[in-house]
Design a protein around this nucleic acid. Structure first.
Lengths: 162, 162
DNA sequence: TTCCTTATTGCAACTGGTCGCAATAACTAC
DNA sequence: GTAGTTATTGCGACCAGTTGCAATAAGGAA
């Protein structure tokens, strides 16, 4: 996996040490096609690398995020989801009622981005947003209040980056 | 405090019981001009209402949020800030480098809101956003990497609502 | 006023994630 | 290959917030 190796080199290039812990965390994420929770990553890494503490996982994840290889998204389930950083940027619409998650591309956000830059000189990191609300289906058969507590949590968390 | 009383009545109207715990949590928030953390609320409530457990505070806060009286914002400091729900909507730009927080009005978000509705039929709850990035000042004297860990956290959390 | 139902509470245990610190092990220089 | 420096690790304690449960008390009915 060339891309994977490239990332490992970047870790060193950025002045960080290449430990088996970091390697295996990255390997696990790179091998997965979808979001993983820290717990899931920990579990999977342990099948490869016999032992590794949870703090090392979190710290590796933070580092990889800082280097831009991984994105962290809080989809409001009380835990964070990690995945390989994808280009181009995409975002998630999370229905507070049924929990459905829809992917959206970056396009509708570009204007917001520009305006914040223009008016406030603020360079927003608009990547991998999770926006909460009501999906079309739940919206049309409204009235029923949101029941899934999970949806009430974390409201609009987005990707963490370094 | 008429508005305050009105809210208490709404709690009952929505079929919830009016307990001294809930009253005092609301009173504390209503009496404050700015964001409060749950811990601060707990502390203040205890000066009025001798004893009250933290879970009651969190549950009251959730209820008041659900009823739309309170907004919860995660500004990335590892704890949530609560305040009386203000109209019109406003948002926060949080600088990941220096930690500076700038208030923004809702205007730049209206377009995004419309587009999500139009393209995806999604009714986004775009209120009380916290957007992370770099402020003008830090952006101009770039190069220095973000140091404040706090800013790396929670990235784009927004208000929680019910 | 008393009784009854059940929402709400306090508690204590738990969750995901963070932090400080001594031990370990990458990397550098020799 | 060996030694030295120091980033990184594992650990255990901690943090904010959540949850399950038995005890309590709010509000409605009699």
């Amino acid at each position: 996996m060339a891309q994977h190796n490239e990332m490992l080199q970047s870790v060193r290039a950025a002045g960080h040490r290449l430990t088996p812990q970091r390697e295996s965390v990255l390997a696990v994420i790179a091998a997965s096609e979808q979001h993983l929770t820290a717990e899931e990553i920990l579990k999977r890494v342990r099948t490869r690398y016999s032992y590794l503490g949870k703090s090392a996982v979190y710290r590796s994840l933070d580092l990889l995020t800082e280097l831009g290889f991984v994105t962290q998204t809080d989809l409001g389930q009380g835990r964070i989801e990690y995945e390989l950083h994808q280009h181009p940027h995409h975002h998630h619409l999370v229905c507070r009622n049924c929990g459905e998650i829809t992917q959206v591309d970056h396009q509708p956000f570009t204007n917001l981005e520009k305006q914040l830059k223009l008016k406030h000189g603020f360079n927003a990191d608009l990547d991998h947003f999770a926006i909460f609300g009501q999906c079309r289906r739940c919206d049309s058969r409204a009235g029923t209040r949101a029941t899934r507590k999970a949806n009430r949590k974390g409201e609009i968390t987005q990707t963490r980056r370094g």
